[in-house]
């Protein structure tokens, strides 16, 4: 045979065909999404290298001078340096506190997002592949979880368990996995109906291989989209819980707790203690959501059209 592979008809189909390629193309072709993605990356880098970037270690009580409390932005410190964003009620440098708070918020958001993704994806795949009673059971629990207000469930759980980072992560996983399970099941049901799955059955491949080697890689698009959006929602949920005082303990301040710290003095003119962490949280969640929305646009099979 002399037939050659054809190039795709470029005026109709996206230029790249892998999920990652489509996601990348989608982000770089939208200026808004590109800015948001750059912001996300920058914030993650800042959080990662926080200890080296922050002017002060806010956990180090020796470095904090109580006489520096509630200084406005650009005030000089006792030691001669400048508090760029002022200090909080304990005399901590706000910028340093925010960098450390960003670390905590991101760790909680990413960790709970990833764990929820793993659990939800596995359950969604199993529900779609096996169907019947297993599917019915999993999906009824999913319906129940999605029917309850997430923040209420987390509140009740933390009220019972008490504070702590791991407990917050647990609570967030509990309220998030159902989103993943539902999205993955929907995608997997479509894949399951395709002939390549029947071919895999006919070729005697094991269920594990079919589920994780064949179906899962084809469900990556919704997983990435839901994952991105869920990380944003986990970060804001954690901030809410910490703001309400039942999230993270005071020793590991997250952005939510920082906002809460300055809340009492917000109207008395000492705005910086609440407003700057608030702005940072806003920028973080907003950027992730813009990236997520863009990914949904470019990865959604209904938009892709195949």
């Amino acid at each position: 045979m002399t037939d050659q592979p054809i190039s795709r008809r470029a005026w109709r189909l996206p230029s790249s065909d892998t999920v990652i390629g489509r996601a990348f193309n989608g982000l770089v072709t939208s200026p808004k999404a590109l800015v948001a993605a750059v912001l996300c990356i920058a914030l993650v880098l800042i959080a990662t290298f926080g200890p080296w970037l922050a002017p002060q270690n806010p956990y180090d009580l020796a470095a904090i001078d109580f006489f520096d409390a509630r200084l406005p932005p650009m005030s000089p410190s006792m030691t001669g340096s400048v508090y760029l964003l002022g200090t909080d009620g304990q005399g901590r440098d706000m910028l340093s506190a925010m960098i450390y708070g960003l670390r905590t918020s991101l760790v909680v958001g990413l960790l709970s997002g990833v764990v929820a993704l793993l659990i939800g994806t596995a359950l969604g795949l199993v529900a779609a592949y096996f169907g019947g009673r297993i599917d019915a059971l999993i999906m009824r629990v999913v319906d129940l979880m999605l029917g309850l207000p997430a923040i209420l469930v987390a509140l009740m759980l933390l009220a019972t368990l008490g504070q702590g980072m791991w407990k917050v992560v647990l609570a967030l996983v509990l309220v998030q996995w159902a989103q993943f399970a539902r999205a993955v099941r929907a995608a997997a049901l479509i894949e399951r109906g395709k002939e390549y799955i029947e071919a895999a059955v006919s070729l005697g491949l094991s269920k594990r291989r079919i589920l994780f080697g064949h179906m899962l890689p084809n469900c990556m698009a919704p997983i990435i989209v839901v994952g991105t959006l869920q990380v944003a929602s986990a970060i804001s949920a954690e901030a809410t819980l910490s703001f309400l005082g039942i999230g993270l303990p005071i020793t590991e301040p997250s952005l939510g707790l920082l906002i809460s710290n300055g809340y009492q003095t917000l109207l008395s003119g000492q705005y910086w203690i609440s407003v700057y962490p608030g702005l940072l949280l806003l920028v973080l969640v907003f950027s992730i959501n813009i990236v997520g929305d863009r990914l949904r646009e470019v990865l959604n099979p209904r938009f892709v059209g195949r």
Binding site: K194, Y196, A199, L205, H214
Partner: peptide, 30 residues
């Protein structure tokens, strides 16, 4: 294994994420 099926739809009968070599070689290897 002795009875194999050849499907209708040349689009959906191949896993889009596997190369030709993977598609052909996977089962005999497994």
């Amino acid at each position: 294994l002795a009875a194999q099926m050849i499907f209708q739809d040349p689009m959906s009968s191949l896993n889009p994420r596997k190369t030709v070599a993977q598609a052909i070689g996977e089962a005999p290897l497994a």
